[in-house]
């Protein structure tokens, strides 16, 4: 097969003939590929083309081709509004807290699980910590809201400790901790899988050498295990840095209310509200495009960083 392709390439056949020959020979594979490509064109690339509405005053009745072009009007409106600062700050705060607390959590879990000698206990802990990954965000948020409600579990525990009760629905300062802690609950198990797999790849000889040297457990983890999975950690960290400006709306729109928008409203939820609730398609698309462009730049930067660290890069 490879040689046939090479032969094809070496003959200086005109491009059209080459194409026809390829289709003739591989038409079945192209048939298999067709539904997939159709999907990507319709549901991924048409919407990318649809981004042009960010530079229009889009009216559904006139469509993309008939709507008036307004240049950067919507971008200017967003950049000069108070919402720019609020949504960017909230997005970065939530990502930042997720990075500081949410990122190390699955690594720690993986390290701890790795110290077990296998068996039923290890499997039970893994099974339990994977569960929240499979539970819908509607259910997750409803359980969390139940626990933090005025008469909920958390307030009862706080009362036992003699502490002041919390008022989640009207106290914006509670949003970050509730969002981040519930996020750790949701992801710690599933995210540990990749680190566990990396840990399984650390050569046992290294451990033995370290043990013979009399290295204590914690020192061994520090000097042997962590360096062994450092490439995986670096890669995941870089990926995470690339996504620092993207916080999804799925969970937040279930968790917030106008009383706590001050802390809870992020770029994506703002796009969701202005676009789908208020019907300001063009403005919302402009805000969304701004976010996508920033994300893309961050991702390129992350890719660069990854290559500089001697990794293969993300792209």
């Amino acid at each position: 097969m490879e040689s046939a392709q090479a032969a094809n390439r070496s003959t200086a056949a005109p491009a059209r003939l080459k194409l026809r020959r390829a289709i003739g020979r591989y038409w079945m594979l192209y048939v298999l590929l067709a539904p997939l490509l159709l999907y990507y064109v319709i549901f991924c690339y048409l919407p990318m083309f649809g981004i042009v509405i960010a530079f229009q005053d889009y009216r559904a009745t006139r469509g993309v081709f008939g709507s008036e072009w307004v240049g950067f009007k919507h971008f200017a409106a967003f950049f000069s509004s108070e919402y720019l600062w609020r949504t960017v700050r909230n997005t970065l705060s939530i990502s930042g807290l997720g990075l500081v607390f949410g990122f190390p959590a699955p690594i720690l879990l993986a390290l701890m699980l790795n110290e077990l000698r296998g068996g039923a206990f290890k499997k039970t802990v893994q099974t339990i910590t994977y569960i929240p990954h499979f539970i819908s965000v509607v259910v997750i948020v409803s359980i969390v809201m139940n626990f933090v409600s005025t008469k909920g579990l958390i307030n009862e525990l706080l009362a036992l400790l003699g502490a002041e009760p919390i008022r989640y629905a009207s106290d914006p300062s509670l949003f970050y901790p509730v969002y981040v802690i519930s996020g750790i609950w949701q992801t710690i198990g599933w995210d540990s899988i990749i680190f566990l797999a990396a840990l399984a790849g650390v050569a046992p000889e290294l451990y033995e050498a370290a043990t013979i040297d009399g290295a204590k457990r914690l020192r061994r983890i520090w000097h042997v295990t962590l360096p062994g999975i450092a490439p995986t950690i670096a890669l995941m960290l870089i990926l995470r840095m690339g996504g620092i400006m993207s916080v999804g709306y799925e969970k937040i729109i279930l968790m917030y209310n106008p009383g706590i928008y001050e802390k809870a409203d992020v770029i994506s939820t703002y796009v969701f509200r202005r676009g789908l609730s208020d019907g300001q398609y063009s403005f919302a698309a402009a805000v969304g495009l701004f976010n996508s462009v920033v994300n893309f730049i961050l991702l390129l930067a992350a890719d660069r960083a990854s290559k500089r660290l001697g990794q293969s890069g993300l792209l």
Partner: peptide, 20 residues
């Protein structure tokens, strides 16, 4: 073509308009 969509998408509103 496939991989680009992991890093860049039309976003919520344009997708909504197309599906609609």
């Amino acid at each position: 073509i496939v991989t680009i969509t992991m890093f860049f998408s039309g976003g919520l509103i344009p997708t909504f308009i197309i599906v609609n």
